[in-house]
Design a protein around this nucleic acid. Structure first.
Length: 652
RNA sequence: GCGCCCGUAGCUCAGCUGGACAGAGCAACGGACUUCUAAUCCGUGGGUCGGGGGUUCGAAUCCCUCCGGGCGCGCCA
């Protein structure tokens, strides 16, 4: 609501300045005044006008304030120093805010936006780093949907890569297990593989010649036949299902899982390779160190020397980037071939996840891919490879798709020194001197996602048991789970993308202060007011209350004096900033902005809650007004939390 | 060596495209529960915004430079 008023004000001031001074404003952007006494929207353009008008900014601001014709939703305009400050009409604002919060969400429209996230190698359990990726991508997807875009969430499965091969080598050569025996391994299979993978890496390290097993396994997997290949498929499918369950626990879901094996077997790569050769986007190297390879030439950027990136190795196999280019082309609908799909997983709410599959029914009418823009949620360490992929599209002449390809980058989750100590990780002298310890799947070093979620649930269950002893076990567990997810998601979202999270159990498991449970608690408190109100009042009292509310929405001006209360007004203003926060989050791909906005809203609500006791309020006009304010605030809070993927428990 | 990112309170971090006295959470200390749940609220202390220069009416924010730290630059992904 505030965003709308800000834009309208900007346009009005622009027109006014044009008429009065015959000048075109460069920037008329509205800002938030530092203090509420200064108004609701601040404009600094008199400073800009001062130069051309050769007058003091203060004079200009005064002249504008005195002569500007304020629209009906503006209470007044004041000059303060060189600023022009706008004060909104508060009763009108409350009514408008109420309307915008009551509006039903927009149905998806327009061209499809594809968000690719998670992309965990299907060879071991997911860890906290993967959670950050998934929660960022999922939240971004929610944000896009709330803006009315149609969105497709993809999760790419690298099922023919080195990491899966290594686990297969572990089963066959270290554990000497047959496929049937691997099938018989009990859950949690992803945990079993986590340890096995680290062991295999260690086994290689002790004797280089053992890498030959990996090479052979990799080749057999790519060929797609025989026991090795079937074991690889079993491993990756089972792990993918484990990942889907883990992510479901924290509220993350997917539409489709494209598999790398399909890109190879359905000859997507061959088609992309032909295109690249035809457009001369890649060239065959005759001699030098890259002899026999197909390479892409990358122009030197800002003084950088040009370089060559190998796309096809001298032995004819494709690199990861090569396959990624084919995948990116498919996402934009730039390949003629199409995948076949089958359902790989069904969520508890019966929603389906599809996966590319050669044995999928060819008559499945699923229009996956063909996006208009694509966001790849991948950590910042892969920036270089993402640039290569985009350059690939560009050199094939796909300028628009290249421009519509966005690398949604973010920094890694590392372990704080304290955390790695708690986990009993042995560190070298050099590692101890570092600010944090990098998570390493190869060394089996990290905090597993499910372990963390379990820990969070365990802790919140204890807290709930203390406070809600009357509830059933099931109810307590349901509440504890929501709190755990709230704590985890908020923790992963509150940091800016390019800030390394040094993971610390103390901070992640905290339920106080700037945390998910704080936000949930605020809404629960608001909801309690209305629940108590319903249970206290009989039918007649209920109707009387409703009539008073009706009166407020029909004649908000009758309550205008009560809105002069700055604590109330701060709360309404913050609730009105939601669209602005969404807009800002979208433009900067910064989910932390949205998180901070929601936190700030909850904070202001709690202040209001403390100073305005509603149910004991004797003055019925005041009570009616405060109820309207509380209701508006809880709706705004619930919406913001939903965007963050945080559900509100019925009690806490 | 080259490129990208970071350096703000004891700790963890905000500070949006430069704007009105630099904020939050945690930690510390002191207060507020017969009240709509204290997972809360109020108060106190704590900062030469890494150093230096520049642009500007105005710089934590933009530019240059130096210092410190992280990451990337594979016929790995």
């Amino acid at each position: 609501m505030l965003l709308r008023r800000a834009r309208q004000s900007e346009a009005l001031f622009r027109d006014f300045v044009r008429q009065r001074f015959s000048l075109e404003l460069g920037s008329a952007a509205a800002k938030s005044p530092p203090r509420i006494e200064f108004g609701d929207l601040a404009f600094a353009f008199p400073f800009e006008l001062a130069r051309s008008l050769r007058r003091a900014p203060r004079d200009i601001a005064l002249e504008i304030a005195a002569n500007f014709p304020a629209p009906p939703w503006m209470a007044r305009v004041e000059a303060a120093g060189g600023y022009v400050n706008v004060f909104l009409k508060r009763d009108r604002f409350l009514a408008d805010l109420r309307d915008s919060l009551s509006a039903s969400p927009e149905p998806p429209r327009g061209p499809k936006i594809i968000v690719e996230h998670t992309n965990i190698n299907p060879n071991k359990a997911a860890h906290i780093g993967h959670l950050r990726n998934a929660v960022l991508g999922d939240t971004f997807g929610r944000l896009l949907r709330s803006r009315g875009h149609s969105v497709e969430i993809q999760n790419y499965i690298d099922d023919t890569g080195v990491q899966v091969a290594d686990v297969v080598v572990g089963f066959r050569h270290l554990r000497k297990l047959s496929l049937a025996q691997v099938r018989a391994i009990p859950e949690p299979f992803d945990y079993y593989c986590w340890d096995l993978y680290a062991k295999v890496r260690d086994w290689y390290r002790r004797e280089d010649s053992r890498l030959e097993h990996r090479r052979r396994t990799l080749r057999e997997i790519e060929e797609g036949e025989g026991e090795t290949s079937r074991m690889a498929e079993h491993v990756s499918l089972r792990i993918v299902n484990a990942h889907l369950r883990t992510m479901w626990r924290v509220g993350v879901r997917y539409d489709v899982l494209p598999r790398e094996s399909q890109i190879l077997r359905e000859r997507f790569w061959d088609e992309a390779f032909d295109q690249l050769k035809q457009r001369k986007a890649i060239t065959h190297v005759a001699d030098g160190p890259n002899r026999g390879c197909w390479v892409m030439r990358l122009p030197g950027e800002n003084g950088q020397p040009a370089e060559e990136k190998i796309i096809v190795r001298s032995d004819g196999t494709v690199t990861y980037v090569g396959k990624d280019i084919a995948y990116q082309l498919w996402k934009f609908g730039l390949l003629e071939k199409s995948f076949r799909y089958r359902v790989v997983h069904r969520y508890p709410d019966r929603d389906e996840v599809w996966m590319t599959s050669s044995d999928g029914a060819s008559d499945v009418e699923k229009d996956f891919g063909r996006g208009q823009s694509v966001y790849n949620v991948i950590d910042v360490r892969q920036s270089y490879l993402q640039r290569v992929v985009v350059h690939g599209l560009r050199s094939l002449g796909h300028e628009v798709p290249a421009d519509q390809s966005t690398h949604f980058s973010y920094e890694m989750v590392a372990l704080s020194q304290k955390c790695s100590q708690e986990l009993g990780i042995e560190l070298s002298e050099a590692d101890r001197a570092r600010p944090y310890v990098e998570v390493s799947g190869r060394k089996g070093l990290g905090v597993k996602a499910d372990d963390l979620v379990d820990k969070l649930i365990e802790k919140s269950l204890q807290e709930v048991a203390d406070r809600q002893p009357d509830l059933t076990r099931e109810a307590r567990l349901r509440i504890a789970t929501r709190i755990a997810v709230g704590a985890l998601r908020y923790f992963l979202l509150k940091y800016a993308r390019n800030s390394v999270i040094a993971f610390d159990f103390g901070e992640a498991l905290s339920f106080e202060g700037e945390t998910g449970p704080y936000l949930q608690y605020s809404v629960v408190r608001a909801n309690n007011i209305f629940r108590k109100l319903r249970s206290r009042r009989g039918g007649a009292g209920q109707r009387e209350q409703e009539n008073r509310q009706e009166d407020l929405w029909e004649h908000p001006e009758r309550f205008a004096d009560l809105l002069e209360d700055d604590q109330i007004w701060k709360l309404l203003l913050q609730a009105g900033r939601s669209e602005g926060a969404i807009e800002q989050s979208f433009k900067t791909l910064e989910m932390s902005y949205l998180a901070k906005h929601a936190f700030s809203l909850a904070q202001i609500f709690n202040i209001f809650y403390h100073s305005h006791h509603i149910l004991s309020q004797k003055d019925s006009r005041k009570q009616t007004c405060y109820l309207a304010v509380a209701d508006t605030a809880r709706r705004a809070m619930t919406r913001s939390l939903a965007l963050l993927g945080i559900e509100v428990p019925e009690r806490m």
